[in-house]
Design a protein around this nucleic acid. Sequence first.
DNA 1: ACTCGTGTTAGCTG
DNA 2: TCAGCTAACACGAG
Length: 277
Amino acid sequence: MPELPEVELARATVDQHALNRKIADVDDHDEWECRPHHPGDLRTALVGRRLTAARRRGKSMWCETSGTGRSRTPGPLLGLHLGMSGRIIVTDRRGKPSEGGDRLGRFATAVEQIERKPVWVRFTLVFEDGGKLMLFDKRRLGRVRLDPDLDALGPDAEEVGVAEFRERLSRGTAPVKARLLDQSVIAGVGNLLADETLWRARISPQRRVDTLDRDDLTTLHKALHRATKAAIRHGGVHTGEVIGFRRAGAHCPRCGAEMTRATVGGRTTWWCPQEQR
DNA sequence: ACTCGTGTTAGCTG
DNA sequence: TCAGCTAACACGAG
């Protein structure tokens, strides 16, 4: 589920509903999700503080925290990574989930899921008012950590300018899709957003970056920007124009040619062999 | 039973 | 040393 658009929606939910509520308790028992911390570490670091801001770069999000008591010194950053299947759920004092930027009805499912699979709640902040911020993560590839290292991330895919994009993406000889997926080059592009972007730009995922000219890179930058914006607006990367056609026997929604599948950059990749060159 | 997967990363290779 | 690639991670879904 989570690529940049989903993480941005999660960040917006935290920003709108979880800030400035005092943290009364923390459930950080999941040693895998909270590694390398140990149970109680996050609790000790966070109880008594408030989240003061929700930030994001690529697929990584983090919250700034306040000082405790009289201390004005800010607390640690709380890093939240959704991994492959994580989602953030914030509830109010009555246990009702916040709507966030999400569609109607989605949170009803979230509540049902939590009730049906409480073990998939890997991390919880309990606020003084009784509400919670939960990381619900089926596959357990998400991560919670204090003061996460963000230095390895490239510029955010939604914000990077065309000149820097061209310069960073064109370095090396890898297939363009592998380069798009490399979070140290550009942060935020996942498997589906990469396929959507390349389809919009009419560029083959297998094209080596050293064969792309200036115009190709400009086109790609514009496609990435538009695909990302559209995904955020429509509620997730799965709403992309070509995503529903990433399956055997499907045909390109623009030209009708049969879609092709291969592994590129280590991930299952679908593209239109007619238009994407 | 067996394969696949919307993410990240340690470890290997040339 | 580095760019690039693979396997492994956890665990449910088909």
